[in-house]
Computed example of a mutant assay.
Amino acid sequence: MEFPEYLLRMKAYRLKRIDKEHDMHLQAWLNHQVTSTKEQGKKQVPVFRSFKDFFNYDKRIEEETNPKLNMSQKAMKMARIAAVANRKGVNNG
């Protein structure tokens, strides 16, 4: 292995470690969120009554398999203009 490849592999390793740290911190955040409570009258009740309230698996699958574009009206207009220009073969020169 040559030195530039070694440096690149070390950088990839360090970035992978950062991703692991991120996942650990996200897990800690989720652990905190799932145990959170809210005041209802004089009692403390869980914010999430069931796991599905906390993470709706079916909804996430639906969002991923059928994404909806949340574009502004201006962005949609610009996309239509670009599509028309692409169909007409606009020449850049």
Rank of each mutant, 00 (worst) to 15 (best):
M1I: 06
M1Q: 08
M1F: 06
E2D: 15
E2V: 03
F3C: 02
F3W: 14
F3P: 00
P4W: 03
P4V: 06
L7S: 08
L7D: 08
L8R: 10
R9G: 01
R9L: 15
R9F: 07
R14F: 08
R14E: 09
K16L: 08
R17T: 09
R17N: 04
I18H: 06
D19Q: 13
E21D: 13
H22I: 12
H25Y: 13
L26N: 12
A28C: 05
L30I: 04
N31A: 13
N31W: 03
Q33C: 13
Q33I: 02
V34F: 07
V34L: 07
V34E: 04
T35F: 01
T35C: 04
S36T: 15
T37L: 04
K38S: 10
K38G: 02
K38W: 03
Q40H: 10
G41S: 09
K42H: 08
K43N: 13
K43S: 11
Q44A: 12
V45Y: 03
P46F: 02
V47A: 02
R49H: 12
K52S: 10
D53W: 03
F55P: 02
N56S: 06
N56C: 05
D58E: 15
R60I: 14
E64C: 04
E64S: 05
T65N: 10
N70Q: 11
N70R: 09
S72H: 05
Q73Y: 03
Q73S: 10
Q73T: 12
A75G: 00
K77D: 13
M78F: 01
M78N: 14
A79R: 14
R80I: 14
R80K: 15
I81P: 00
A82F: 03
A85C: 06
R87P: 00
R87C: 10
K88F: 05
G89W: 09
G89D: 10
G89K: 07
G89M: 07
N92V: 11
